[in-house]
């Protein structure tokens, strides 16, 4: 099932630099599509870093950029749209 989902190309994506992340949760709670969550594992700072998944609880990433703007650690390094 997972394989089938991932096979569908996401319309947009964000890049999270996990080592910069302090796991504050802000990107998670502002994402309208719930495409971000905190990992169960740790980064080297001892935080649960944010992880991006292409197909969120409410739909695909739309490159709205809210996560990028609120992230206090500039850990969201890129927001990109699929070129049709």
């Amino acid at each position: 099932m997972i394989a089938a989902e991932e096979a569908r190309p996401p319309r947009a994506r964000v890049v999270v630099e996990a080592e910069r992340c302090k796991g504050c949760d802000l990107c998670v709670v502002v994402c309208p599509q719930r495409n971000l969550h905190l990992a169960t594992g740790f980064n080297r700072g001892g935080y649960h870093p944010a992880v991006f998944r292409y197909h969120g609880d409410r739909g695909d990433c739309t490159a709205c950029g809210l996560c990028y703007w609120v992230c206090p650690d500039f850990a969201i390094t890129e927001v990109a749209r699929l070129v049709p």
Binding site: A63, V79, A80, R81
Partner: peptide, 18 residues
Amino acid sequence: LRYETKLGELPTLTGTPT
């Protein structure tokens, strides 16, 4: 697949962890 950057690196950020 080709992705086009909408928001990305800013020259005015040093990249130093805060």
